[in-house]
């Protein structure tokens, strides 16, 4: 059992940002959320971690409405990495990852051997063990992102929600990170912009446009030229790349700025 989202709608500042979305991820699978900027990916992730309550529909965690569960119980199950979480404090990488243990620690914050092991393992998984003593302010954008991922892993979640986790990462780290996430024994729901990465690493894909689900299913079934045209207003070629049925998307330059006069380019 894992998250189960049924007919969820959410109005934010008068705009219907999530409109009748249903998503039933299988335990352990990696789900990609695709869609243009403002299509409701981040909002949907917000609802799934009970950071906000939907206006309609239900979100269940192991059959229990997530809004009725204690915050701490939710945090022991679901970890989230949001976009651009920054700090002004002189916090070290180790301290950042240690934050992931917050829902597992008691009131007075005593540390257990399990905490230390989880922190070390999380640092190891994102390749930051050597950097544990460094200050946040000295990290590159990619290192910060990996530190946040490690923080989420240290939370030992069974559901992992990631909002564009590959931002700021070079291609090597993008692939490493998504490989890591897709092989973890957790249900991962990832908002992504890169269609090829989604095709490579996601077991299933949910495509959103203006808060609505446009398509859902396996990458090769979902990622088609007509869908990409409908959602992104872009012409694309989709080719099957290997025997497992993976797909690769390439874009046509002619589709850029079609509605703008040529002199603007």
């Amino acid at each position: 059992m894992t998250l189960r989202i049924d007919s969820v709608s959410w109005r934010r500042g008068g705009v219907l940002v999530v409109n009748d979305v249903t998503l039933h991820p299988r335990p352990g699978e990696t789900v990609g959320l695709l869609g243009p900027n403002g299509s409701g990916k981040s909002s949907l992730l917000r609802l799934m971690q009970a950071a906000s309550r939907p206006d309609a529909g239900s979100i269940l965690l192991d059959g229990e409405p997530i809004s009725t569960l204690p915050r701490r119980a939710v945090a022991q199950r679901i970890a989230a990495v949001t976009q651009q979480a920054e700090t002004d404090t002189d916090i070290t990488v180790h301290d950042v990852v240690r934050l992931g243990r917050t829902p597992h620690r008691g009131l007075w914050g005593g540390a257990s051997a399990r905490d230390d092991a989880a922190i070390y393992e999380a640092l190891d998984r994102v390749g930051l063990v050597d950097q544990a003593g460094r200050f946040w302010r000295s990290l590159s954008g990619g290192e910060r992102q990996r530190a946040h991922i490690a923080r989420a892993l240290a939370q030992e979640p069974r559901e992992l929600l990631l909002d564009e986790p590959t931002n700021h990462l070079d291609i090597r780290h993008q692939l490493d990170l998504l490989h890591l996430i897709s092989t973890l024994d957790v249900t991962s729901i990832i908002a992504l912009h890169d269609l090829n990465l989604a095709a490579m690493f996601c077991d299933s894909i949910l495509v959103l446009k203006r808060g609505r689900v446009i398509a859902a299913g396996e990458p090769r079934d979902v990622l088609t030229p007509p869908l990409i045209r409908e959602v992104y207003d872009i012409e694309a070629d989709v080719t099957v790349v290997n025997e497992t049925g993976g797909v690769s998307v390439s874009f046509k330059r002619s589709s850029c700025y079609r509605s703008l006069p040529a002199t603007r380019l």
Binding site: A51, R71, A73, A75, Q76, T82, A85, E86, V96, L99
Partner: peptide, 10 residues
């Protein structure tokens, strides 16, 4: 790291 991260940590 702000309210959202704090909330996600329970």
């Amino acid at each position: 790291f702000g309210d959202d991260v704090a909330a996600s940590l329970g």
